[in-house]
């Protein structure tokens, strides 16, 4: 938890002594962002492959999942995941000790890097992001056309080899511009973790405001931090797009 500042503030913003706390919040935001982005990427790829190239059943399951996730609020998804063990405990053992433990945490060097609220946030963000990332990937795959797949088949490649050597290398390149939407939305969506008591950048900002009443200064500072973060992500992806572009195309 937060420690009170030793001396009254003397910076132009008045919140300078809280910068360490806000930096810790930024660390948590980045952590939620990257883990959710990676989980969403891996699951999104599976969903996209299932939807674009899967059989009837697997493509329907993938489509159903994507529709469900995109059709319901992210915050509701998080609350569903977060409250599930508590609801199950109440149902499984109404009077006895809880069956599912939600009080565990993993700490290292004084930092909590995983506990139940953080896990619930990562899972909710990752599952949600997967649905959006899947659609960007599927769009890129659909734009490839069937000619190259036929050529790969006629060489005798297996389905797996066709994905690995023909479809995925090109789909990844093609999806970067549209996928950068998701990559720059997701840092902002991580603020939902605040609602389940995770101290991300936004959560820390709320605490600072509660302590100092300097709402305008704090929220402007935090807004600028998000802006810088997302600008950096966008620039990196632009560079990556240019660097991996296929010559002549």
């Amino acid at each position: 938890m937060m420690s009170s500042p030793a001396s009254p503030s003397i910076g132009p913003l008045g919140i300078e002594e809280w910068v360490g706390e806000l930096a810790a919040g930024l660390g948590m935001t980045l952590y939620l962002y990257f883990t959710a982005l990676i989980i969403g990427f891996a699951l999104g790829l599976l969903l996209a492959l299932a939807r674009q190239y899967g059989g009837r059943i697997s493509s329907r399951i993938a489509t159903g999942y994507i529709d469900l996730i995109r059709g319901t609020p992210l915050l509701a998804q998080l609350f569903l995941i977060y409250t599930m063990p508590y609801s199950l405990n109440a149902w499984l053992s109404p009077d006895g000790p809880p069956v599912i433990n939600t009080r565990w945490s993993f700490q290292l060097l004084g930092l909590t890097y995983l506990n139940f609220p953080i896990l619930a946030s990562i899972v909710a963000l990752g599952l949600n992001s997967a649905a959006y990332q899947a659609e960007y990937m599927r769009g890129a795959m659909a734009s490839l056309g069937t000619g190259q797949v036929l050529a790969a088949q006629s060489l005798g490649m297996t389905k797996h080899e066709i994905f690995r050597y023909v479809i995925i290398p090109q789909a990844f390149r093609r999806m970067i511009p549209s996928w950068s939407n998701e990559a720059s939305y997701l840092p902002k969506y991580t603020v939902i973790a605040t609602f389940v008591s995770v101290e991300d950048l936004f959560g820390k900002a709320k605490l600072v405001v509660a302590r100092t009443f300097l709402a305008l200064e704090t929220y402007i500072l935090v807004g600028v931090v998000y802006l810088i973060l997302i600008t950096i992500i966008a620039r990196i992806l632009d560079k990556l797009y240019e660097k991996t572009k296929i010559p002549g195309l």
């Binding site: 190259q148 790969a152 090109q170 296929i246």
Partner: peptide, 8 residues
């Protein structure tokens, strides 16, 4: 007919 080379 349309070559179908691997573009990448």
């Amino acid at each position: 007919q349309h070559f179908n080379l691997f573009a990448h």
